[in-house]
Design a protein around this nucleic acid. Structure first.
Lengths: 148, 148
DNA sequence: TAATGTTTAATTGTGCGCAATTAAAAAGTC
DNA sequence: GACTTTTTAATTGCGCACAATTAAACATTA
């Protein structure tokens, strides 16, 4: 009875899944950022929010969610923590009181200078050429657009 | 003062990061599994545990962690939930009392039959050929081995 | 064998991620 | 203009992920 043969279904083997390396690599890359972001006192998703704010200065929660593919259940508490650290501001859009507009405070703006070295430092840890990285990024982005 | 020019640093733009499509695509793929796994009453990481158990029947928490790149802080509560649902068993290894051995219970074994259709169903949602999927998987696995 | 070091899980605490619900504002429709 | 529908955030609850700590079992070495 404890000898029931195990059906070796290749479709159900971890090594044959596309999902697993995607899942695992994503976490490993996040971990590669961690020590660098710790110096900025930011988590990885918080860092992504700042990438957008440094580029656009102001964005609504909705716009952040559209760009990061995250909903308000994730963003609202994250943004409140950044507000509490005086890095960003949160205010209702007077023209549409449903929207909450996120803006950079001086301390949040100043983080950009210290963040400049992060991409290079992380890149150095992944042993791949620029061309390889860009090719993979385009590949992943293509898939992403098909799904989102 | 609110006119401080924003330095457009391409290295700090979300669209130029490799990390973001990896992070976002991983979550999207997990979401693609969700409705299928819901019928098995499993979460995505729980499903990964079962892929390994269906293949190996018994594995220690350590072995599961090595294969999934997860630590006991993640696995212990997850496994306790599966134990509570009578899907798996947890017992100390009599030969090394530090190890906890995870085994399949009948209900957990029977889940395999219902799971057989999951990989095909998920694959259908990603508009890519087998060859493309395999190429990408190998690429991601190579990167993963470099990091782990 | 006694002391030291290593391995393995468990625990604790924090921060996502997301489904589901609620509530308010805005837009569309009759 | 009242009614309905849609949009937008916030809230609640649950399950990961993971860093840091603890404790027990095992291994190594003096």
């Amino acid at each position: 009875m404890s000898n029931t043969p195990i059906v070796a279904n290749p479709l159900l083997q971890l090594d044959n899944q596309l999902c697993f390396p995607l899942y695992a690599l994503s976490r490993m890359v996040t971990k590669a950022y961690q020590p660098l972001l710790q110096e900025l006192d930011l988590t990885y998703p918080q860092y992504l929010v700042f990438l957008l704010l440094w580029e656009h200065r102001e964005l609504s929660v909705k716009e952040l969610g559209d760009k990061l593919l995250l909903d308000s259940g994730t963003l609202t508490p994250l943004l409140k923590r950044l507000e509490q650290k005086q890095l960003i501001s949160r205010r209702r859009d007077p023209r549409d009181e449903r929207s909450v507009i996120i803006g950079l405070l001086p301390a949040g703006q100043e983080l950009q200078v210290r963040a400049c070295q992060v991409p290079e430092a992380v890149f150095a840890r992944l042993n791949m050429t620029r061309a390889e990285a860009e090719a993979l990024r385009n590949q992943l982005n293509t898939l992403l657009k098909q799904l989102a």
